[in-house]
Design a binder for these strands. Structure first.
Lengths: 222, 222
DNA sequence: GTGTTATTCAAGGCATCTCTTGAACAATCG
DNA sequence: CGATTGTTCAAGAGATGCCTTGAATAACAC
């Protein structure tokens, strides 16, 4: 025994939470699960991995207590076990943004050049929502919109955008958002809308960040 | 190329911040560094590891950008590179407390039975500080007290406590604190004081948590 | 019951992590 | 200058992590 080993074991256990997030694929999983619960094969498709591998990563998250699972017939649905897990993920992401060298380059490798993209902050959007002079566009799969969205937003999933542009009122100012700062759907939407002559901007990050600040939301459980 | 790999690389980079914390010894290092800067051999003593191994862990934290180093003569001092790192560590600890099974058992293995220990919350202490009817006792090394402490606290380092009990005013109510929720110094102090008939309690956690809530502090940089 | 679908389990190969040891380096002291 | 002190580097052994593959479960449909 001895305090030495007891202390080491305690901090080892505290580090388990970090180990659970210490993998790119599991980070992607948590990022998707922050939008709501998902089945294993949906998650596997999102992170572009085999189902077996995705299942193993989910077991790891489960063992660390960061997610819970629920059986529904033949499917098993995973979800974050508490809002604190979302907070942990966002804090970790912030820390990486601030401190991990190379992150800027990797982000622009994936997201492309964002310098020409108009963006608005949460505060700006909140003000404009109160004034009512803006159309908020949720560019996520319908399921995620249903699980919760910015109050007053309209939903057009990414793959439907081209064919459903008519639903956007003529002459409206549009603010698009999706899952978070590293989600491309809103970027694509803003680029498309801009090309069509619509005045469009993207929200600086996504729905989870909006909800975490207790700004107005609608959907399941509200 | 392809988005597939770019996305994976981006999330791998985000996970780097978690990997840096995904080790018990590095968690201990961050926990100590949250009290202020330290040299390599001081840190090695704190985490009970060889200097070489401690140095390697510090390199890892440095590479992830979570700490910075400063040379002073023959010594090199490390410190957290921003308050966000402290926040990340506290959030991770909270997540582990809430979700990692076995943590309670490991904590009591190290800390002993806390059920008989009086504790006060930050809010309670704040109120009593305003009323002025409490003596706040900082049970950390002098260096850490000097780097910052709860405003109005008196400093008695852990190893001096027995010999300096006389400095505590007769009949006072004492609230002791140290580095954080898993630091034993305040526990030991409260137990010692209670045995001597002093009315003593420990603050629920430590100085970094107090400072993070922007409660009144004194010391370097204030 | 059989067949189908969704998920997990088990085993293996390769990479990374962790700690040890002993040497190398860098700044100071005499 | 050489000696000392504090820190880092380099190499290696053993453990753990990650992804692949193929088989095993579990619930459902017929």
């Amino acid at each position: 025994m001895g305090d030495h080993q007891a202390k080491a074991a305690l901090y080892d256990a505290l580090a388990e939470a970090a180990k659970a997030l210490a993998n790119g694929r599991r980070a992607e999983l948590v990022d998707v699960l922050a939008q709501g619960e998902r089945s294993v094969d949906e998650l596997a498709a999102e992170i572009e991995q085999t189902v077996a591998n995705t299942s193993q990563h989910l077991q790891r998250l489960l063992k660390a207590g960061l997610v819970t699972s629920r059986r529904d017939g033949t499917r098993i649905h995973y979800s974050l076990s508490s809002p604190l897990v979302g907070t942990l993920w966002r804090t970790m992401r912030q820390a990486a943004e601030l401190h991990v060298a190379e992150l800027d380059r990797l982000a622009s490798d994936y997201l492309g050049d964002r310098t020409k993209l108009n963006t608005v902050t949460r505060d700006q959007l909140r003000t404009r929502l109160r004034q009512g002079d803006v159309v908020v566009l949720d560019v996520r799969p319908e399921q995620e919109f249903a699980a919760g969205h910015i109050r007053g937003a309209i939903s057009i999933p990414p793959q439907d955008l081209k064919s459903r542009l008519g639903e956007i009122p003529d002459g409206a100012d549009v603010v698009a958002y999706c899952r978070g700062p590293y989600c491309v759907y809103a970027d694509d939407a803003v680029r498309l809308l801009t090309r069509r002559g619509v005045n469009a901007a993207r929200l600086e990050d996504g729905f989870p960040e909006w909800a975490a600040e207790r700004l107005p939301v609608s959907g399941a459980g509200s």
